[in-house]
């Protein structure tokens, strides 16, 4: 199976430690289908892992699901990860500063959009070019 431009893959997982592995496997499959090399795929996995851990942060209000949507574009792979109401761009938290630093290093674009449900959607874009 190959994925075409504008194909979308979505997963919704319980926000638990063991879901991280499913995110990693799904990312590996999608990365493979769109032709990312191991460095690029690992960057994406590092970004998602960082977000997942951030959303698991015990001080955050509980949220039952972690959503990831992969949208395959002609020149890039857009990944939207939706988690709990954590403001990634709030610089008062060391954890946030660290997570954002890592995210900005491994993704080509990181954006945070307030969600109507009170959480934040974090959009990560990874270019398909080498």
């Amino acid at each position: 199976m190959s994925l075409d431009s504008e194909d979308v893959v979505q997963i919704a997982l319980p926000q638990r430690e063991d879901s991280a592995k499913i995110v990693r496997l799904t990312t590996a499959v999608v990365a493979s289908r769109v032709g990312l090399n191991l460095d690029q795929a690992d960057d994406l996995n590092t970004a998602l892992d960082e977000l997942f851990r951030l959303f698991l942060n015990e001080n955050d209000p509980p949220h039952p699901r972690f959503y990831v949507r992969y949208t395959i574009g002609a020149a890039d792979l857009e990944v939207v990860a939706k988690g709990i109401s954590q403001n990634l761009f709030d610089d008062s938290s060391k954890m946030n500063r660290f997570s954002r630093f890592i995210l900005e290093k491994v993704a080509d674009k990181v954006e945070e959009i307030p969600s109507p449900q009170g959480g934040y959607e974090v959009v990560i874009v990874k270019s398909l070019s080498a």
């Binding site: 590996a28 990365a31 493979s32 090399n37 191991l38 460095d39 795929a41 080498a130």
Partner: peptide
């Protein structure tokens, strides 16, 4: 460069 999964 590193390979893609398809290349491996």
């Amino acid at each position: 460069r590193s390979p893609s999964i398809a290349e491996i």
